[in-house]
């Protein structure tokens, strides 16, 4: 475990139980997942049971207990995207990457996820790679977009 890296996150907080979620968010952002050993330290430091940390880590969709890929790919399945073919877009992305939603490619480049709504409904269907939106997606654009991120 990289103690220094974890400390640099923990020192930004006062150590109250309500700091749990922001701390987990920071860890998720930096590590791209929540490593077990780190979670144990967090529980000790905030003086909360490990069960609580585990409950929170498994309740919220943003958190993952397994390592995620370099690029986070989120396909929107909001209502408008659903009506405009979001599901097919997802299936296409999924088969291009060879993974089901919720998984990461073996080369650790991409993690594929679905999201309830990205709030860009006027441009449905939408997907997001890391912080970039791709609007009015069509299946024939999928491989082009993915190419931009492939090594």
């Amino acid at each position: 475990m990289d103690v220094e890296r974890l400390e640099s996150i923990l020192t930004q907080y006062e150590g109250y139980p309500q700091d749990l979620i922001p701390i987990l968010q920071d860890i998720q952002d930096q590590y791209h997942y929540l490593p077990k050993d780190e979670l144990k330290v967090v529980a000790q430091r905030l003086n909360v049971p490990l069960t609580k940390v585990y409950s929170v880590a498994t309740f919220y969709k943003m958190f993952s207990l397994i390592p995620k890929g370099r690029h986070q790919l989120r396909v929107c399945l909001g209502t408008t995207c659903h009506l405009k073919g979001g599901q097919r877009l997802l299936e296409s992305v999924s088969s291009h990457l060879g993974i089901e939603p919720g998984y990461t490619t073996a080369d650790m480049q991409f993690s594929l996820e679905t999201v309830g709504c990205l709030g860009s409904c006027a441009q449905a269907p939408v997907m997001m790679v890391d912080d970039k939106y791709y609007a009015r997606m069509t299946i024939d654009k999928v491989s082009k977009v993915l190419k931009l991120y492939k090594e």
Partner: peptide, 26 residues
């Protein structure tokens, strides 16, 4: 007073478990 078990996940996969589905020190 030990909180060795809790609920994990939400609806589809909600279950009672120890953390990480492992034997719990608590």
């Amino acid at each position: 007073g030990v909180s060795a078990i809790s609920m994990a996940n939400r609806t589809p996969g909600k279950l009672v478990t120890t953390p990480f589905l492992e034997p719990s020190d608590a």
